[in-house]
Every structure is written in C-alpha cells, then in structure tokens.
C-alpha cells in the first residue's frame, strides 16, 4: 500500500515538474491560459473521481461547491476588500461547510436520490441567484446585487502579478493554479491509496461486513464529500482569482457535463484517469472550435459512447491491456 502511494506521488511530482517547465516553452498567452483552464477542470475532475469513483457518492453538485469557492472570493473582495490570496482558503472552507450541511441532508440516502438531490440543490441556488432583483450597493454606477444577479461579479482585485511581472503576469497566475492543482491531486492520491481509500473499498465491496467491523458508511461518505468539497471550492476560488470574475454561468449544465465527461473518459475508480480525461476533453473541445458550434453535441456523444461501450474509461482499458500483456508474458515464461 505504501508503495502505491510512493509510486503515484513520484509520478505526480514528475507531472508537476513537467508542467512547471511549461511557461518556459510556451510563449503564447493564449496557450498558457488554456493550460490554466485545463489545470482547473482537471482538479475538479480529480476530486469528483475521489468522491464518485472511490467513495461511491454520485454527486451532481460539484459545480455548486466550485461556485461557492468562486463567489466567496468575489464577494469578500467586492464588499470587504479582502485580498483574493486570503479569500481562497476561506472559499474552500465555506464550500466544505456547505458540504457538511448538504451531506447531512442527503448522504444517508441511496445513490440515485443523492444524485437528484444534489442536482436540485445546485439548481435552486442558481435560480435564487439569477432571480435576485434588489440592488445591494452600486458599483461603478451600476446596480450590484448581493449575490451578483445575472451578471455576477467582475473587477475582482488581481493577484498582484501584474505589478510584479508586468507583461508576464499570467505566468504568476499559472504557477498559483499549478500549485492548487498539485495540492488537490496529491491529496487525492493520499486518500485513494491510504486508509480512507481502504475504508471506501471495504464499504463498496461488502457493506454489511464493513458495517459489522464498525465502519459507519454515512460518516465516511460525508467525510469524502467534505474533503472533495474543500478542494473543489479551493479550485473555484482560484478560478475567480485568475479570471477576476464569478457569475451564474458556472452553474451551466454543459460545464457540469464537460467535467463529468473528463471523469468518465479517464475512468472512474482510477487515480490518473481524470487528469488524462481532462487533457483529452480539453484537446477535443479545442479541435471542435474550428468545426462550428458542436461543443455540446460532442460532449453528449462522448459521454454516451463511453458509458455504453467503455464504462471503465481509458484507465479501465489500460488495465485490461496491461493484464493481457502480463498474461501473455507469463504464458511465454511458462512454455
């Protein structure tokens, strides 16, 4: 088990150093920005995989937790003038607290109920935000609603890299986001291959036996939900800090499905799947940009095709290939 953690951490560090070299190689601001987007969604996908693939909680409320992180940064900055640097951990904590409440309300229930309730709760928050009519203050001559209404928040203070690095400010932002991705991914490795992951597997394989050994299923599910909410919220906060905006478009169904596609394509129940899936989906959408408005059609198609034909995703496929390879090798050695 410890070997598992070590191998994955070493792999993660290699990835981290490769990504850390990217700004030196990638000059274009556009490409660097795309890589930032990749790191953000990959981090959300990694956490979703911990929650659904390993803890067995199928939440459709991940973008709500993401938005809570983003809105916390936006609101504390707009109303209280708090720096995004300080607001990021606050956003992660608020998302985790929200997860405690949602978890207590739903996680005792069966799988389909959890999915539907988390989906309904996100939608409810979305509706409450966009139907807000009263102005809270006026900002720059415009009406600023408390939760931002349909237009959300913009002009969040920048992270300070513009002053420090001038034209290369985006490199600063890139390293900040890379740091958060690394944190999120490292945490997921430790959970998946550590004692918590072992408990999740025990609960999934034999719920009755695990319960008899004193494992409290609901408690572990809530722990997993709060854990993934913390890092999802943190990533959302980083999103708001980088783009300097937060708005109701974060709740778009297509965004939720875009990230779900990353998890499915990469493979639930794996460790590296979501990262690979995120890279593939980002690449696919990039190609789709040249082919007209087919992004959503493609996301839908990819999801359906993978669930029907390859429900274990690319990680499952590679597992099968490796085990077949090993089998043929063993057979060769035997003969």
């Amino acid at each position: 088990m410890m070997n598992d953690v070590r191998n994955n951490v070493v792999g993660g560090l290699l990835l981290f150093f490769a990504l850390a070299c990217a700004p030196a190689l990638v000059g274009e601001r556009y490409l660097l920005n795309e890589m930032i987007v990749f790191l953000i969604w990959a981090s959300v996908a990694v956490q979703w995989n911990v929650l659904t693939g390993h803890a067995g909680v199928f939440s459709l409320g991940q973008m709500l937790l993401f938005a809570i992180g983003a809105y916390t940064v936006a609101m504390t900055n707009t109303y209280l003038g708090i720096s995004p640097w300080f607001a990021m951990p606050i956003g992660a904590t608020v998302a985790a607290l929200a997860a405690v409440l949602i978890g207590l309300a739903c996680l005792r229930l069966a799988a389909a109920y959890v999915a539907l309730l988390t989906f309904a709760i996100s939608y409810m928050v979305y509706v409450l935000i966009i139907t807000e009519t009263e102005c809270f203050t006026t900002v720059g001559g415009g009406c600023q609603r408390f939760f931002g209404g349909t237009s959300g928040f913009s002009r969040i203070d920048d992270l300070g890299f513009r002053k420090l690095l001038r034209g290369d400010w985006i490199v600063g932002n890139y390293y900040m986001i890379l740091g958060i991705f690394a944190l999120s991914f490292l945490a997921s490795i430790i959970v998946i291959h550590g004692r918590l992951g072992l408990a999740f597997r025990a609960l999934a394989d034999s719920p009755v036996y695990a319960a008899a050994r004193g494992l409290d299923r609901t408690k572990f599910r809530i722990v997993a939900f709060v854990f993934s909410a913390f890092f999802t919220g943190l990533t959302g906060a980083a999103y708001a800090a980088h783009f300097r905006t937060a708005g109701p478009s974060l709740f778009d169904f297509s965004t939720l499905l875009f990230i779900l596609a990353m998890v499915i394509v990469g493979g639930l129940r794996s460790t590296w799947g979501p990262v690979v899936g995120a890279a593939l989906m980002m690449g696919m959408v990039e190609i789709a940009k040249d082919m007209g408005e087919i992004r959503n059609t493609m996301i839908g198609l990819v999801i359906v095709l993978f669930v029907v034909l390859m429900p274990d995703g690319i990680a499952g496929l590679s597992r099968r290939v490796v085990s077949r390879f090993r089998k043929t090798n063993d057979a060769k050695e035997a003969s």
């Binding site: 999915a115 779900l260 596609a261 996301i299 839908g300 198609l301 999801i303």
Partner: peptide, 13 residues
C-alpha cells in the same frame, strides 16, 4: 449510476 450519466449526455445532445 451509469444510466444517469448516459441520459445526461443524451439530454445535452
């Protein structure tokens, strides 16, 4: 769970 995911994909399509 898989059918939830698949029908969500069908929905957006």
């Amino acid at each position: 769970i898989n059918i939830l995911v698949a029908t969500a994909g069908v929905g957006i399509l």
